[in-house]
Design a protein around this nucleic acid. Structure first.
Lengths: 244, 244
DNA sequence: ACAAAAGTGTTCTGTCTACACCCATGC
DNA sequence: GCATGGGTGTAGACAGAACACTTTTGT
C-alpha cells in the first residue's frame, strides 16, 4: 500500500495531471530534399541541454488547440500552416519529474502535428537561442519520449500526403507542378511515382488552375505556374482520392 | 485579473487536470442491420440520469490504454476486440464540475475507440443496471460532449473499415462471405458496393482461406465458411489496400 | 417446381504503369 | 547544337461497375 492509498479511501487513488502540449512541426526544404522538424533546446531540468519538441503546459481557460497555436507562434512566424491533433501520450513514468515531484503528479502530453512552409517560416530567436530545424533522419538525442512522437508524426505526414491536400497549405500561392512533385518525393521517397503519371493524376482532378504565367529556373523549359483552387476542391473533400 | 492570477505569479496559471478515459465501444448486429454503441447510465451528478460513454478517471500508475481496457472489462465480456486511441477532448468548460469544484480543475477526456463482436459480447449488469446497446441513429440525450465523441468514432469506424482488416477482429473464426458483406453494408450503407464485386475483391486478396465447410442458414444454397489468415495478410499490412 | 441465397462469369469502361517522345529555354 | 528540365502521348496490364446467369439448398 502506498501512503497515498492509505491516506485516502477509494476515489483518491486517482492521478493528478499536468497536461502539456507538444508540437511536431514539420517543414520541407525542397531545395535540398530534406524533411525537417523543429526542435528547441531545453534550458531547465529535467533533460537540461537536450533537444526536444516545442511544448508548453496548458494554462487556465485555454483549449488544447489554442495552447498548440500559442507555442507555435512563440517559436516561429508563418503565413500558412496546417495543424491537427496527433496523439496523446500519457503513460506513467514518461516524465522524470513524476518521481522527483510531490506524490501523484503525472505528466501527460497531447501532441499536435503541424506542417509549415519552410521558405516562409521565420524562427524566433529567444534570448539564449537554441532553436533549429533538424533533418528527420539526423535527429540528436531527444528529451522525454519525443523521438516516439516524431516517429508517429512522420507516419501521419506520409499518410496525410497521400489522401489529403495538405501540401497546398504549404506551397506558395503560385507553384509549378514539379514543385509539388519535389515535395512529394522528399517525403515519400524517390520512387513513389513516375513524374508524368503524378502530373496527369493531379491535372485530372481539376482543382489546379493554370495561370499561364511561366517561371524559368536556370536552364530548361519554363514551367507553368499553378494555383490551388479550394472551391474546385470542395466537392472532393472526404472522398477517398489518392495523390499517389 | 482573476483571483487566481493575482494569487500566483507566473507558472501557477497552469491548469490542473483530472484525466478521464471514455470508450466509444461499437458493435454490429448483422441480424438486424444495426450499428450499436454501448452506453451506461450515470448514477451521480453531474448529468445524473443521463446516458454516457463508459468511462473512468485514470488511476495512479495506470497507462491510458490500461484504463481503457479496465473500463471495458468492467462493462462487457468479450473474446476478441479491437481497441485504439481516438481523440483527446480537453477544452475548458466541457465538464460542469469545473465551475462547481474548487478553482482551476479541468477535466480532460482521452477517448478510445473499440470494436467488439456483438454476438460474443456479454454485458455485465452492475447492481443498479443501466447499461445498453443503442443504435447509432437513435441516441438519447448524452452527458458531456459524448455525442461529439461518438460522431468522431463513427467516422473513424467507417474509415477503418475501408482500409484495414478490423472487421476480422470482430467476426467469428469461421464466417461466410456474406457475413462480411452484411457487416460492411451495416456500417457503410446499402449501396457501398455490389456484392459480387466486393466478393471478388476480397478473394483476390488471398488472405481468406476457404475451409470447404458449408453452412446452411434457412433456405438457399449453403455458403462456404472462410477463415482469416493473418500470415497471408501480413505482407499487405500498411499497404493502401481498399476493401471498398 | 419454386423461391431463396450463394457463387460465377461477362462486358464495358476506366485507370495505372512504364515508357518514349516532343517542346522551350540557357549556354 | 546540345544539355536541361517541362510537358504530352500511348500501348498494355489491370481493376471496378453493372448485371445476367448458374448452382445448391429448403419447402
Amino acid at each position: 500500500m502506498t501512503p497515498v492509498t492509505e491516506r485516502n479511501s477509494n476515489k483518491q487513488t486517482l492521478a493528478d495531471f499536468k497536461v502539456g502540449v507538444d508540437n511536431a512541426i514539420f517543414s520541407i526544404d525542397t531545395q535540398q530534399n530534406r524533411l525537417l522538424i523543429l526542435l528547441v533546446m531545453r534550458h531547465e531540468e529535467p533533460y537540461l541541454g537536450y533537444w526536444c519538441l516545442p511544448g508548453t503546459l496548458v494554462r487556465n481557460g485555454e483549449t488544447l488547440e489554442i495552447a498548440a497555436d500559442r507555442i507555435l507562434a512563440e517559436k516561429i512566424k508563418v503565413d500558412n500552416l496546417y495543424l491537427e491533433q496527433l496523439y496523446t501520450f500519457g503513460g506513467p513514468g514518461r516524465d522524470p519529474r513524476e518521481a522527483a515531484d510531490r506524490y501523484d503528479v503525472r505528466y501527460l502530453s497531447v501532441s499536435y502535428f503541424a506542417l509549415v512552409r519552410y521558405e516562409a517560416a521565420e524562427l524566433i530567436a529567444t534570448g539564449v537561442g537554441g532553436i533549429a530545424w533538424y533533418p528527420i533522419d539526423k535527429l540528436p538525442d531527444l528529451a522525454f519520449d519525443h523521438r516516439q512522437i516524431i516517429e508517429y508524426g512522420h507516419q501521419r505526414l506520409r499518410n496525410k500526403l497521400e489522401y489529403s491536400p495538405i501540401a497546398f497549405d504549404v506551397l506558395p500561392e503560385l507553384f509549378t507542378l514539379s514543385d509539388i512533385y519535389q515535395l512529394y518525393t522528399t517525403v515519400l521517397g524517390e520512387n513513389f511515382s513516375d513524374y508524368s503519371n503524378f502530373r496527369n493524376r493531379l491535372i485530372k482532378l481539376k482543382f489546379l488552375e493554370d495561370t499561364g504565367i511561366k517561371s524559368s529556373r536556370g536552364s530548361g523549359r519554363p514551367a507553368s505556374l499553378y494555383r490551388f483552387d479550394p472551391v474546385a476542391f470542395a466537392p472532393l473533400k472526404d472522398k477517398p482520392l489518392l495523390f499517389v
